[in-house]
């Protein structure tokens, strides 16, 4: 009935909705600011929290500078080792975002490839991939990540394990998230596969790989974008959780989760800032990413419009 109306492409539609959503714009702004600050941590941070020589135990547990006993050098206080909390948070955010982005990239490449192939080829390949996904689903993400981390500890000697911690963490989180991508890609591919433009290329005798990755893939990017955003939030959350549990990043390179874990020990003795500021940073980051994910989901879901 609306055929007489102007027809807009998906991209234009997205842009329009974005320009009319204050919330989405704010979330995008916060995400970009935080990512920028994290990326430039080495330049904007007052000190280097990884350099043990640069901080002094005499400065430990100082409250934020605006409070009694605060020190002007440390805007939001210091931790138990005299580390400037602001610097630690900036570096920690950088680490959290790096692990989050890398693991989501890993999960999406693995998941989309498998899901696309399972959906297009069907048959035995599909059955095998989906059975593996079933098994994976019966193990919640955090459990999978913990397990992979545990295996890595068992296989690798302690020293190597600390060196490879970030890789292990990325793989652990990535492997626990691929199923989401695979299922989404598979479901969308099922729909696309039965569309006639795909049949037209099949009649031509186009190579299946080309049909999958050149013809179909661009058409299923919408739902994958949504999962990408939502899972970035999940990955950041998982990394923080693992670090909080003490099985994540090495302690000399604190991520947000590590900072919070350290902070909980001082929660009862009144040094609340060590736990509150990293927690707030983490929550704001995840909220911003989730808001964007929500926006994308609603914008790309024609049923809701």
């Amino acid at each position: 009935m609306l055929s007489r109306l102007k027809r807009a492409s998906v991209e234009n539609e997205l842009l329009y909705l974005f320009l009319h959503s204050r919330v989405a714009q704010l979330a995008a702004l916060i995400s970009v600011l935080m990512m920028g600050a994290a990326a430039l941590a080495a330049f904007v941070a007052p000190s280097n929290p990884y350099d043990l020589a640069s901080f002094d135990l005499l400065d430990s547990l100082l409250p934020p500078s605006y409070m009694d006993g605060g020190d002007a050098r440390f805007l939001i206080g210091t931790d138990d080792q005299g580390r400037d909390l602001l610097s630690a948070i900036l570096y920690g955010t950088r680490l959290s975002l790096t692990v989050g982005l890398l693991s989501v990239a890993f999960a999406s490449i693995l998941g989309v490839t498998l899901g696309l192939m399972a959906g297009y080829l069907g048959g035995r390949f599909d059955t095998i991939v989906m059975r593996i996904a079933d098994v994976q689903l019966s193990l919640p993400a955090i459990l999978t990540a913990l397990l992979i981390d545990g295996i890595a500890r068992g296989i690798l000697p302690q020293q190597r394990h600390d060196d490879l911690m970030l890789v292990v963490l990325t793989v652990a989180i990535g492997l626990s998230l691929w199923v989401n991508f695979a299922r989404t890609a598979r479901a969308s591919t099922f729909v696309e596969k039965n569309k006639e433009y795909v049949q037209a290329t099949q009649i031509m005798g186009m190579h299946p790989l080309r049909i999958m990755f050149v013809q179909i893939l661009p058409n299923i990017l919408g739902p994958i974008m949504v999962i990408l955003t939502v899972d970035l939030a999940v990955a950041i959350l998982l990394e923080a959780t693992l670090s909080f549990l003490g099985v994540g990043v090495p302690p000399n390179q604190p991520s947000l989760g590590t900072l919070i874990r350290i902070g909980t020990e001082y929660l009862f003795s009144g040094e609340w800032w060590i736990v509150i500021f990293p927690s707030l940073t983490l929550v704001v980051l995840i909220v911003a990413v989730n808001v964007l994910g929500d926006f994308l989901r609603d914008a790309l879901n024609p049923k809701l419009r």
């Binding site: 569309k195 006639e196 433009y197 049949q199 037209a200 009649i203 031509m204 005798g205 190579h207 058409n219």
Partner: peptide, 26 residues
């Protein structure tokens, strides 16, 4: 039928649903 079989070119099809028979991303 091989992917290079000449009939793959010689036989072509016009489909029912013009909304699904063209790739929207090209």
């Amino acid at each position: 039928r091989a992917r290079t079989h000449p009939a793959r070119r010689q036989i072509q099809m016009v489909f029912q649903d013009p909304y699904s028979s063209l790739n929207n991303r090209r």
